Amino acid sequence: MDYCFGIDIGGTTVKIGLFSEVGEMVMRWEVPTRKGNDPSGLLKDVKDALENCMSEKKIAKENILGIGMTAPGPVTADGVLHNAVNIGWGAVCLAEEAEQIIGISPVCIGNDARVAALGEAAFGAGKDAKSMLMVTLGTGVGGGVVLNGHILMGESGVAGEIGHMTIDPYETETCGCGKKGCLEQYASATGMVRAAERFLKKTETESVLRQLEKVTAKDLWDAAKAGDRLANEITDFVCDRLGSAIANAVYLVDPEMIVIGGGVSAAGEFLLDKVAKAYQAKVFAHSRNKKFALAKLGNDAGIMGAAALILSKTE
């Protein structure tokens, strides 16, 4: 049997999965993320981890189809990662360097959010869809578009970067990317907290949120689910902006379904219904019946999507 590796590089750990040629996860583990000015140290750690796995499982190198890898930054089709600021790298030809250091080829890389979308499309919520938009709501807002089993990357690697779509041109505060009015400033976990703080300051509406020393995104959604009036106003505001961004994306790529993932998606169907309702108010009538679904793969979406990068090349 042949195998491949799926690798998801994060700011704290590198998640690694060994997959069979039919996409079954055989083994999963993590190693600490070694940070530095370039990826060589991290790639050496990955090389050791893969060789130990192959030795343990008695897998010869010639039975490895390749390595799929996610990277926390924009990735272009030539395998170049452009500025992974969270782990200290500038622009690097990550695919080529990984092949040289690890000694396995091919190595296919993609942006972490886009590859997670591919994972959901291949193995998760979008498995039966021909096209899918995924939006990941976490510390930031990530996104990815999958068409006929392939990630839409774009010329400069930013296709699907819905989190930095300008959604409010009159915003005065600056996003982490340097722009103002990005979706991420409202629909990320941190953006939701900021929205809550703004509403609490400008209104006198009674709310359980006022009893909390520090409001979290989970607090906000728990209060909204419990019927708190102000919490529902805040989440409606957040979902209106998210629904607008999804509607804009649909007008460009018109996917069959929309998948919502990330930590905030733990709010479940309650969140999904609000987002779908907001979206439906922004689009043509014949585009309102898009299927909305919650992501299914959780933290494994990255490594499973990375494996799909390789398995799709060998089909």
Rank of each mutant, 00 (worst) to 15 (best):
S40T: 12
S312D: 13
V22N: 09
H82E: 04
F199N: 03
V264M: 13
V31N: 13
A266E: 08
E97C: 03
N289K: 14
R114I: 01
K225R: 13
T314M: 12
H82V: 14
N232Q: 14
I59E: 01
D48P: 00
M54L: 15
N83L: 09
W89N: 02
S188P: 05
C108P: 01
G261I: 13
L252G: 00
F123M: 10
A285C: 04
L43Y: 10
R34H: 02
G243L: 09
Y170R: 05
L18Q: 09
T13S: 15
G157D: 08
T314N: 10
H82Q: 09
A245K: 11
K127Y: 00
R114Q: 15
K47V: 00
I260P: 01
V135D: 03
E184C: 05
A231F: 10
K47Y: 04
V238S: 08
S287M: 12
C93N: 15
V115G: 06
R114W: 01
K47Q: 13
S40W: 01
E24K: 15
C175F: 02
K35M: 01
S40H: 07
A113Q: 04
L133V: 07
K58T: 08
D38A: 08
K202R: 15
F292I: 10
A281H: 08
S40F: 03
C53G: 06
V259G: 02
S20C: 04
G119D: 02
G160T: 04
I234L: 10
K277Q: 09
H286A: 07
G126W: 11
A307W: 02
G262I: 14
L42M: 15
G149M: 07
I260K: 01
D236E: 15
C108H: 10
A113H: 05
C175E: 00
I104W: 07
G6D: 06
K58W: 00
L294M: 12
S40D: 14
N111V: 05
L81Y: 00
E173G: 00
G262W: 06
N148V: 01
G68M: 10
I246Q: 07
A116R: 14
G160C: 04
E206R: 11
R288T: 01
K218L: 11
G305A: 10
D128G: 05
L220E: 12
L297N: 07
T76I: 14
V250T: 12
I310R: 03
V253H: 03
V14A: 07
K218A: 12
G140A: 05
